[in-house]
Amino acid sequence: MTDESFFSFRQMLENLLSFQGEFTDEENGVHSYIYEIEIGTPVELDISVDENGKVTIGSVPPVYRVNTSFRPSYHSITIKAEKYIPDNGE
C-alpha cells in the first residue's frame, strides 16, 4: 500500500501540468501562450508491490526546504508537455 503522504504518479503529473499558460497584455495588445514546456524536478518515490506483483508508484516533489543530515533519496523526473490538440484538430 502506498504511503498516504504520497500522491499517485498520475496525480503528481496532473498537478505539475495544471498551470496557467496564457499571458495577456491588454494595454499593448499582446497575447502569448506556452505551447511546450519542460519541467524537471527531484522526486521522492514510494514504490509498493502487491501480492500479484502489481507495482504502484507513489511520488512527491520535495516539500521541505530544510537542510538535514539525513536526506531522502531524490530521484528525478523530467516531463516534456505540449499544448493539447484534440485528434480531430478542433
Binding site: L13, F19, L45, H75, I77, I79, K80, E82, K83, Y84
Partner: peptide
C-alpha cells in the same frame, strides 16, 4: 499512470482549451 493522465487532461481540455498533455517523460531512479 501516463495513459490515465492523458485521458484526464483530454477531458479537462473540453472546457479549458489551453491544456497541456505529456509528450515525453524521463525518470532517473
Amino acid at each position: 499512470e501516463l495513459d490515465k493522465t492523458r485521458e484526464t487532461l483530454a477531458i479537462k481540455a473540453i472546457n479549458k482549451p489551453l491544456t497541456y498533455t505529456v509528450k515525453d517523460l524521463a525518470i532517473d531512479l
